[in-house]
Write a protein that binds this DNA or RNA. Sequence first.
DNA 1: AATCCACAGGAAGATTAGGATA
DNA 2: TATCCTAATCTTCCTGTGGATT
Length: 420
Amino acid sequence: MSLFDSFPRESQIFTCKEYLRHSYTPDKLLHREEQIQQLAKILAAPLRGEAPSNVLIYGKTGTGKTAVARFLLRELELARTPLRVVGIYLNCENTNTQYRILAKLTTFLLEDLKQRIGPFEFQTTGLPERVPNTGWPTDQLLDTMVATLEYEGKVVIVALDEIDRVAGGGEDILYKLSRLNSDLSRSRISLIGISNSANFLELLDPRVKSSLGEIQVVFPPYNATQLKDILEERARMSFREGALEEGVTALCAALAAQEHGDARRALDLLRTAGEVAEEKGCTRVEISHVREASHRLQRSAMEEVLQTLPLHQKLVLLGIVTLKQNGCRLSFGEIYRYYQRICERNPELSAVSPRTVKNYLDELDMLGIITTTVVSKGRGGRTTEVRDLTYPEMRELLSEEMSRFELPPVVESKLCRFLA
DNA sequence: AATCCACAGGAAGATTAGGATA
DNA sequence: TATCCTAATCTTCCTGTGGATT
C-alpha cells in the first residue's frame, strides 16, 4: 500500500482541468466574432502581397485580447498562402526592454530558419547561431533580423502583448519594427500591439501613433450572459457530465461580470469552485463551493496586493485596522497620530511625513483596500475619512505579518481629542 | 458675511534605490 | 568593485477650501 494509493486516481469532478487555465487558447472564441473579423481582414492583406498595416488592440484584462491574438496567429500559420506566415507572440511583461524584445524576435527567427533549411545549409548563410542576451548594439540586431528575414521570403506577424509595459512606453521598438518593412524586399513584417490601457495611444509619439494606430480594435468587457456562454463551453470540456449543479456557471459569470467582465476571473472562479468541491469529497460542484472559491480568490488577491505594499504603507494600514475595531470612521489626523505612535514604540521605525501618509491613503483607496471620502466639519476642519475596509479579514492577514511590531494601546478617543 | 479649523492637494527640491557603466 | 545615472519616492512648502461657528 503506497501513500499515493490513498489519493483517488481519477477526479470525480474534472475530466481535464487544462481547458480552464487562461493559457489555453480555444478553437472557438465566443462573442469576439466581430473583433476577429476586423483583425482577420487587416492581417490578410500581407498574404496577398499588400503592404501590411499595424493594429492596436486594447481592452481591459480578461476581455479575450490575448486569446484572439493567439488564435489568429495560429490560424494564419495554417492558411495556404503563397508566402509562408510566421506568427510570433511575445508578452512584454517580462521582456520589457527594447533590446530584449528584439533579441527574442531575432532568436526566434534564426531558430525558425535553421529548422527550415537544416543546420548544414544554415552554416552557409553567414548568420550567427544566436544573438547574445546583452552586448550588441541595437542596429546590429536589426540588421541580423533583416538578413534572417530576407534569406527566405515570409510574412512575419508579431504580436506584442502588454506593450505598455515596455520601458519608455515601447514607442521606439514599435517605430523601429514598423520601419523595418522599408528594408525588406522579400518579406513583410506586421505588428499587433496589445494593451490594457485605453490611453496608451495618447502617450505615444505622433509618428508612432500614425503608423501603429492606423487601425484600432477595441475589446469591450463581456457581460454576464456572454461570460456564461464562455464558461459553459469550457465546462463541457473540463468537467464530468453532471458535475455542475444548476446555476454554478451563471453565478461565476455574474460575479465576474461585476468585476468589469473579466473572463479570466470567471474561469478562475469555476476552476477553484471545482477544486473546492474536490477537496470536500463532493461529486458535484455546488453554489456554496462557488462562494467559497470567490472568497479564496479574494483572499489570495488581497495577500498578493499586501505583499507589494511598502512597509510604512502597511503600518498605516495596520493602524487603520487596529483603530477601526470599534467600527467608527477615522480621520486623517487620528490615523497619522496613531501611526506616529507605532513608530515611536518601535525604535527601528521612523515616521514618514503626513503628506506621504496621505498619498498612501489615496493609493489604498485606489487599490480598493479601503474607501475614503473627503468631508468637511465646518470649524472642525476638512479631512479625509476612512469609511470602510473592503475586506475585513485583512486584519488577521496583516497582524499576522506585522506581529513583530509592538502596537500602542488604542486610547485616542473623542475625549482625548477634547483634552488635547 | 467673515472667520477659522484641519486638513487637501499641487509644485518643486531632496533623497534614495536600483541598474548601468567604467 | 566603485561610481555614476536615472527614475521613483519622500519631504518641504505652499495655497486652497467646505461649511459650522461667530
